[in-house]
Write a protein that binds this DNA or RNA. Structure first.
Lengths: 345, 345
DNA sequence: CTGAAAGCGCTTACAG
DNA sequence: CTGAAAGCGCTTACAG
């Protein structure tokens, strides 16, 4: 591959001159510039950004880390990455993608590699707070932002939806529809993000003057099948008129169970989910759920990361609003939509 | 950040010596090695891979390109990337992710950047054959593999599922169930991959001795709503007993329409889709569909790319088998599953 | 306007 | 076993 030196030789000038025309300096005579441009074309020359990066002491790349095990990656990954990529490219940064496999990859190995690559920043998507990888990144001096993981460090901060508020609104919606026995289906194991949904649920009930009722609480493993069995356990014990599930997938399991038992949704049982999974609008009845904007999260993550990198300022965590998407699974009157307030912790 | 020279100074040896211990050469005395390791630890030294890459004339990275516009990215992107990342990391290569936005990004700009980065290879996911980006990459000298795009070049090849065979099996399944009036719902605009599904449909009918019937053909824009309207047009003209849709999303639209018209699925109308969208098993009735393995595609793409890079051999295109996933939307007897043959074009 | 020279942080023959 | 030196392909003061 042609180098600066080759171009200089061909154009009959020095490498400094070639470098200047490439970088658009205006101290080059028109005739020289033309000769150089010609030589570049003839040699099909492309500046070597690796050499450039070495000299400038910058990698011009940020890392994005996601988990790949059995495709449990983040439900919003695609939206997230689109926003993130656009924002980061704006700042002339590229993305080095790591699909982290806890089984196969060592945390130290990853950090070693990221240091060697001189990553300018890292965004870690959807991992547990207590994950060794998260802990290690949080402790490192590489600027980092965690998405849906409430971890932070001297150079690290996080972004998440306002899960508490989202759940609060969903449950409030059920209360307004007249429900008083509202069950809660929790997913386990869980992190702060998921536990916040339970907090929102409890708060809504409390604000409505309803007593806490442990018999209405059930949990499952985030699968449709697990939720199905959880519904079975729940109804063997009590008969709620509505149920709030911490994920849409679990809501699908509950709806499946209701169908099998001949319980009509929403008339016999109102169901609300969380995430606005693409499937939510295709199931019957269409699922009322809490939507998070992956795009906004990606944008916010990029902004925080850039701030961390460029201004060296310890960015504050950011909580993004969610939106209740009312569909048919609660027998909602009309298509009312509620915007949650913008919050920033 | 500490450099080799710093480590050498601290350990009281030369940089060559340090380099040798780092790279695991066995011509270093134990005592020297210890001193060096100690210095590395004290300085928290991380070799600069940018410098290393420059010297070795390798970037150690491959590009992955996906389209981001309105999140129409590839339905199998997540699975694909997991397999791709694992295989590529195995070969000590990293992934530089580009989310290509045809509106905002210039094709020349992208190629320029990829050349400057000295990408060792590129995999382009799910773009149209005639896309300028695809054309440019195919013409370039960068080893490339296209996923779900039947384009090739001197250094480029492609990977796709056997769409023709997948459709053939789906339609054959309907034929075996006794259907004779099987409609086809096409998506537009489309590429080879989608048109192959139509070929498979036609072939299946022909092999069953059924005449071609243009009135059974309808098309829509790959959206649920478009499919809904297409179903309306179709049934205004003729009354099929089954319909094969080129995507699950379109199948959902057809099922919605049937529900609105009081036509029962599968008794009044059998429906088959393509893709095995995650929502397929959540809709009611669960959708019979043709599954592609994103994981296998990612693996195959990685293998082809590595072959192109390492052996400099012009890799042949690869066609991967699909699998008919029989669920409830055709009123299928039992849960029979058909494996398609392994094909390689 | 243009060029010679130093240096970014490494690896690799080559001497000793 | 260990070190001095060249060189990967650039950019940037500094001279002229």
């Amino acid at each position: 591959m042609a180098s600066l030196k080759d171009v200089a030789r061909r154009a009959g000038v020095s490498v400094s001159t070639v470098s200047h025309v490439i970088n658009g300096y205006d101290d080059i005579s028109e005739s020289t510039r033309r000769k150089v441009l010609q030589a570049i074309r003839e040699l099909n020359y492309h500046p070597n950004s690796i050499a450039r990066n070495l000299l400038l002491q910058r990698s011009h790349t940020v890392g994005v880390v996601t988990v790949g095990q059995q495709s449990i990656s983040h439900p919003l990954f695609n939206q997230l990455i689109v926003a993130l990529a656009a924002a980061v490219e704006e700042a002339d940064l590229g993305i080095a993608l790591t699909v982290y496999d806890p089984e196969a990859d060592s945390v130290d190995g990853c950090l070693q590699r990221w240091h060697e690559q001189r990553l300018e920043g890292i965004v870690v998507i959807g991992m547990a707070e207590e994950s060794p990888l998260v802990q290690a990144v949080a402790r490192s001096k590489i600027p980092a932002v965690f998405v849906d993981t409430q971890a932070s460090g001297p150079k690290a901060t996080w972004i998440a939806s306002d899960n508490r508020q989202g759940a609060y609104e969903a449950v409030t919606h059920l209360l307004r529809l007249g429900h008083r026995k509202i069950a809660f289906l929790q997913g386990v194991p869980n992190g702060r993000i998921i536990r916040d949904r339970y907090e929102g649920y409890k708060q809504a009930l409390q604000d409505a003057g309803l007593p806490a009722d442990d018999t209405l609480y059930e949990q499952a493993d985030f699968t449709k099948e697990g939720a199905y069995r959880a519904a079975e356990r729940l109804f063997a014990r009590t008969v709620p008129t509505a149920i709030f599930c911490v994920s849409d997938l679990m809501a699908f399991g509950v709806m499946q169970w209701a169908r099998d038992k001949g319980i009509a949704v929403p008339d016999g049982l109102a169901v609300v989910g969380f995430d606005d999974d693409p499937a939510s609008e295709h199931v019957t009845p269409a699922l009322t759920t809490v939507r998070q904007s992956g795009y906004e999260m990606g944008l916010a993550a990029a902004r925080s990361l850039l701030q961390l990198i460029e201004e060296n300022t310890p960015a504050d965590p950011i909580t993004l609003p969610t939106r209740l998407v009312v569909r048919a699974s609660c027998g909602a009157p009309g298509r009312a939509r509620t915007e949650s307030r913008q919050a920033s912790a």
